[in-house]
Design a protein around this nucleic acid. Sequence first.
DNA 1: TTATCTGCAAACATTTTGCAGCGAG
DNA 2: CTCGCTGCAAAATGTTTGCAGATAA
Lengths: 135, 135
Amino acid sequence: MRMTPQRAAIDDLLDQTDDFRTAQQLHAMLAESGESIGLATVYRTLTALAEAGRVDVLRNDDGEALFRRCLQVEHHHHLVCRDCGRTVEIAADVVERWAARIARENGFVEVDHTAEIFGTCAQCAGARYRSHQHA
Amino acid sequence: MRMTPQRAAIDDLLDQTDDFRTAQQLHAMLAESGESIGLATVYRTLTALAEAGRVDVLRNDDGEALFRRCLQVEHHHHLVCRDCGRTVEIAADVVERWAARIARENGFVEVDHTAEIFGTCAQCAGARYRSHQHA
DNA sequence: TTATCTGCAAACATTTTGCAGCGAG
DNA sequence: CTCGCTGCAAAATGTTTGCAGATAA
């Protein structure tokens, strides 16, 4: 993959962004910081990075793709805040073993699995509680 | 929800179908069996059934929604064959406890989680193996 | 009767692609 | 110099919606 200003900008942005973001959000963030990069380029770059295993991809309930710099190289799962997007990476041997066992018991091979937890983080829950008190 | 011929046809089809299918696949299946039902109606009905908890919904890697009659009322997960769609419902206390613990440890509330296993079932794997032998 | 459902077509949102020109190596 | 990358706009896909007419209750 050739290094271009666009690719560098996307890379930098991903470095600065801790949470899962859609391609469109990342594109808008680039625009705000003065980098005028085509949406198609953002998609192409993210797709390439995902294939190279350099970013994590997951889907929200609406079926939109969410991207984020992959911190851990090994397989892992996520705990994501629905409100602010804050994300915690989780290593879960329990889940790995469970998936492997279930697959084996049912005669499935070439197995893969997804396991993500969505919730409201303490900070967002607190903010909501406080705003109710004021109302 | 009013009972209509369309709704009945979709209900019947779901009863006969064990595997996860996209709305478009279900619509095509209805067309093949002579039921000419609008695609929009299929979507509207599936969405309503999903909201009522009468069907399970999950997303494939492309972000498409997959629907299937919900056999177990309680929360559960799925083991899905990538090739033929064959699906096994799985009760997984291990995963429930894992999700609850991780959320608690990180101060998250109102948590929800997804956990699905995708693989190739024994039958499809066997078919592929046999076809390789012939080639 | 009447509120709900249906079908159609148009609208939408996200993502992909064709193509001409630009630029990193 | 060359091949890959970019931007734009158009297309493809999956899904939703507006509306006028049909219909279950």
